[in-house]
């Protein structure tokens, strides 16, 4: 079969990815420092030029790091902490665009054209081989 080689390759890779995706989920609890790192790496230092709060040494960043740390100790979830800051500083403070109605286009468009191109390509291939 003409498609034999690539099917093998694809199947192997997809298999691996699937298996280990499940393992990633079971990675378990990270230490508080890691959680602070994770959250503050997604936050913008408002007094710097395009730096994350994690990377920045500015007063503002130190302040926010403390606040985030305290909230993690108080067992607040990442979502709650982000919401807390977004309410006060706006979505501008988060580097990862939130999944709301305004940003739907941003998140879906790339994958949409990707999927469309894929479909188109398969179509064209089929046409060529018949």
């Amino acid at each position: 079969m003409k498609l034999h080689l690539s099917s093998n390759k694809l199947v192997l890779i997809i298999l691996y990815i699937l298996i280990f995706l499940f393992s990633t989920v079971a990675l378990g609890d990270a230490v508080i420092d890691d959680k602070v790192k994770k959250i503050t790496s997604n936050l913008r230092c408002m007094t710097c030029q395009n730096q994350t709060i994690y990377d920045s040494d500015a007063d503002f960043s130190k302040n926010i790091k403390q606040i985030v740390r305290q909230k993690i100790i108080d067992n607040q979830s990442e979502k709650e902490i982000i919401n807390f800051l977004v309410t006060r500083y706006g979505e501008y403070i988060v580097f990862k665009p939130q999944f709301n109605r305004r940003n739907i286009f941003l998140w879906t468009f790339p994958f949409l054209i990707f999927a469309l191109s894929f479909v188109f390509f398969i179509f064209r291939l089929k046409k060529n081989t018949t």
Partner: peptide
């Protein structure tokens, strides 16, 4: 401590 400022989104 800047807590009121925090509520209002003050950063500078």
């Amino acid at each position: 401590k800047g807590l009121i400022g925090l509520e209002l989104g003050v950063f500078g």
